[in-house]
Deep mutational scan, measured.
Amino acid sequence: KVKIAGPGLGSGVRARVLQSFTVDSSKAGLAPLEVRVLGPRGLVEPVNVVDNGDGTHTVTYTPSQEGPYMVSVKYADEEIPRSPFKVKVL
């Protein structure tokens, strides 16, 4: 029921550039959304989540370095389908 889309989860994500993606939970009811961005060697990146007021949230983060990242998206305390997402930061 929760959908996710945006360039911040795709290929070609650049280090030190603001990345974003949208989480659409409009068909999933009200529940807490939790997003974690883990970088190389367990680095935890700050994440900004904005409630758009229409059942969607815009998530932004800036990867601080190149390497493999994991983006975990939980809704109602459960990983959404395909989460955690593997993101290769260049």
Rank of each mutant, 00 (worst) to 15 (best):
V2E: 01
V2W: 00
V2D: 03
K3T: 13
I4D: 03
I4A: 11
P7S: 10
L9D: 03
L9K: 02
L9I: 15
G10C: 11
G10H: 07
G10F: 13
S11P: 15
S11K: 11
S11L: 10
S11V: 11
S11D: 14
G12S: 13
A15H: 09
A15R: 06
V17M: 14
L18Y: 05
Q19I: 01
Q19E: 02
S20Q: 11
S20M: 11
F21S: 01
T22F: 07
T22Q: 08
V23G: 00
V23F: 02
D24E: 04
S25Y: 06
S25M: 15
S25R: 07
S26D: 03
K27F: 06
A28R: 03
A28W: 00
A31R: 06
A31L: 10
P32F: 06
L33C: 06
L33F: 06
E34Q: 14
E34C: 14
V35S: 00
V35N: 01
R36T: 14
R36K: 15
R36N: 10
V37M: 06
L38D: 11
G39Y: 01
P40T: 05
P40Y: 01
R41I: 11
R41A: 15
G42R: 08
L43C: 14
V44W: 08
V44Y: 12
E45H: 08
E45K: 04
P46W: 07
V47P: 05
V49R: 06
V50Y: 11
V50R: 11
V50E: 11
V50T: 14
D51W: 11
N52A: 09
N52E: 11
N52D: 06
G53R: 12
G53C: 13
D54T: 07
D54M: 09
D54Y: 08
T56Q: 09
T56G: 04
H57G: 05
H57M: 05
H57T: 07
H57S: 10
V59E: 01
V59W: 02
Y61R: 00
Y61V: 01
Y61H: 03
Y61P: 00
T62D: 01
P63V: 01
P63T: 01
Q65M: 14
Q65V: 14
Q65F: 10
E66V: 12
E66L: 09
E66T: 11
G67W: 00
G67R: 00
P68T: 14
P68K: 15
P68I: 14
P68H: 15
P68Y: 15
Y69R: 01
Y69P: 02
M70Y: 12
M70S: 13
M70K: 10
M70Q: 15
V71F: 03
V71I: 15
S72H: 15
S72L: 03
V73K: 00
V73F: 00
K74C: 07
K74A: 05
Y75A: 04
Y75H: 06
A76M: 10
D77G: 14
D77A: 09
D77W: 06
E78C: 10
E78H: 08
E79Y: 07
E79M: 08
E79K: 06
I80Y: 03
I80K: 01
I80H: 12
P81R: 06
S83D: 02
S83V: 00
S83H: 01
P84I: 04
P84G: 01
F85I: 12
F85W: 12
F85M: 09
F85N: 02
V87P: 01
V87H: 02
K88R: 15
K88P: 13
K88E: 15
V89R: 02
L90V: 12
